[in-house]
Design a binder for these strands. Structure first.
Lengths: 341, 341
DNA sequence: CTGAAAGCGCTTACAG
DNA sequence: CTGAAAGCGCTTACAG
């Protein structure tokens, strides 16, 4: 009959009140630290002691119900959309969590099941979450209006719409891609191939825009034959390189919209006995954890997915708490020069 | 004043009852599908229509409160414990989610803050979660007793204790490592180096045991000088290889307790101008997504982290629902032969 | 400084 | 077949 054998989670405000010889109202007040100045210090101490002894924690369901206020945010994403983005998703979660924990919120994962699943709608209406983080790796304006109808705070990560206006956080994709071209040109390249990501990815589109902008800034023309439409897959990188090598006039450098495709491109080059960067330079985008241990070490555009996550969580929590926030936050990218270019 | 402008989440059971001209008890009954046989079909239809029209979803807080039953499970982990395991964590989440979604549960992420944080305790006592998935990359018997005291269903992933008895799911680490040695011996190797993971990882210990078992089964002696104590980091793999190359008699093959360290080991070999597998064969453990595109493609022991996740979630949910479950589930590993060994 | 009581949105015996 | 009412564990004006 020792202390720990009692099922701890059964302790309620009533138990504490009884043990302390006060009303539940008083317990509630000390728990919430409200009107504390008008509560007898002795009473406070006694209640606190009992709470400590029983390790009492108010039931969230009850608190939520009576306050109509939550501290849980949901993250909506496509479970199959990030297969090739493992570390990406991971870093993002880490970033979100850092803020969520700091602000004493909770994070609930809400995977989208099908193309037009409205799982999150249920979570919203049932008051399971008080705000949404939307992470889709592709443009999906179809779902956003549904979310908007719910009249709930939300922030979109790493994507945005040209048609709709809503809060989002993204990397400086265009700037980063433009910087990539700048660098390559400085290194003497004039024939720069581009491997794009999937068309339905806003990030991919922006990087493509950045590539074109970079060319233009450096007085180079955009040439259709130096553009390869990829899809962020490793195999696509290899295929792209196969295509470039087949050109009558090969590019001397290739800029890939994603590290993974750059890996594939380099793999293909090595298989063909070509050397990187001597024969062809390859520059990636992402700075994934493996860029550094790849052979050769990958030069790339670093983007801080962690910061995207933490900024988005910060924006969302501020919205939930009724504070003002900027409509968008763009996280800087940075060129990281290693061996491949 | 169109339909969609009304803040949807405000709809309560009372509203539905009023619109349908019935009592809230009746609404509750049709929502829960209970005692349906004794409810007038016409009434049912009417209520259902209204619910549909207003897209009513019962408040989880209210339901939880009155039913004292939840459908949320929490995943406890060390946010900094998986930095080098990104895809690992990712696959695990994917596996968990597959089951969680199927069973109509929710997943809440509960990162441990400090060494002995009892964050999860709060979640349990406040009834935020009805069960816990414990994922620690190292042995931490200190926390498990705390969880056990809470008297809540839980399952440990990819780790277990020799002292305590509790439900867990893990890969067949020992078997896998033993298979690795078998394969290397079949390929003619008799001097097989081993790079271990961190000492405080149960996985690492088991793989080490498996390595020794494999040697013994093949009549080879365990030699201390062929053992290098690593820590699952890429740099450790390189350092291990540096050590092995410094031996008077080098190993002809090296088995690494993790792919990442194998990558580091191979990188070092390449830097020294040695060839894999010709000069030294290297075999990994994990079959991480990059094993395939590494140069050379990494031969390794595949483990299905996805299955660890889904099995653990399945066990946990069964526990929560009061169904019987096995005390442990061991997920098979499999040798994957590629180029490096 | 403190308590009684209404109310948050549901569920579920208990009556009828 | 259906409703009135108690109860789940809290919060918060309202009194005193």
């Amino acid at each position: 009959m020792n202390e720990t054998s009692r099922p701890a989670q059964q302790v309620t405000i009533k138990d504490i009140a009884k043990k302390a010889g006060v009303s539940i109202a008083t317990v509630s007040r000390v728990v919430n630290g409200k009107y504390l100045h008008k509560i007898n210090p002795g009473t406070q101490a006694k209640v606190r002691r009992i709470i400590e002894e029983y390790k009492y924690e108010p039931s969230v369901s009850a608190v939520n119900l009576s306050k109509s206020r939550l501290r849980t945010i949901g993250m909506v994403f496509r479970p199959h959309g990030f297969k090739e983005f493992s570390t990406y998703f991971d870093e993002m979660i880490r970033g979100i969590l850092s803020k969520v924990v700091e602000k004493n919120f909770n994070l609930m994962l809400l995977p989208l099941k099908m193309e037009h699943d409205v799982n999150f709608q249920k979570m919203v209406r049932s008051k399971t979450v008080s705000g949404l983080l939307l992470f889709w790796t592709h443009i999906d304006d179809l779902l956003i209006p549904t979310v908007m109808e719910e009249n709930i705070p939300f922030v979109v990560l790493s994507n945005y719409s040209r048609a709709l206006t809503y809060p989002y956080v993204d990397s400086a994709n265009m700037q980063g891609a433009s910087d990539a071209v700048d660098y390559l040109v400085r290194k003497g390249h004039a024939r720069i191939g581009f491997i794009s990501g999937s068309d339905d990815s806003r990030n991919a589109q922006d990087r493509f825009e950045g590539y074109k902008l970079g060319l233009k800034k450096n007085g180079l023309p955009f040439q259709q034959e130096l553009y390869y439409r990829g899809s962020f897959l490793e195999s696509e990188g290899a295929r792209a390189m196969e295509y470039f090598l087949g050109l009558k006039e090969r590019p001397t450098a290739v800029f890939s919209a994603g590290d993974i495709m750059a890996f594939g491109a380099i793999r293909y080059l090595k298989e063909k006995g070509l050397r990187v960067p001597d024969d062809i330079a390859v520059l990636g985008f992402d700075d994934s954890p493996l860029a550094e241990s790849f052979d050769p070490q990958l030069s790339t555009i670093h983007q801080s997915v962690f910061d995207i996550g933490s900024n988005a969580a910060d924006m969302l929590i501020k919205q939930i708490e009724g504070k003002g926030t900027p409509l968008k936050i763009i996280v800087d990218t940075k060129l990281v020069v290693r061996r491949s270019a």
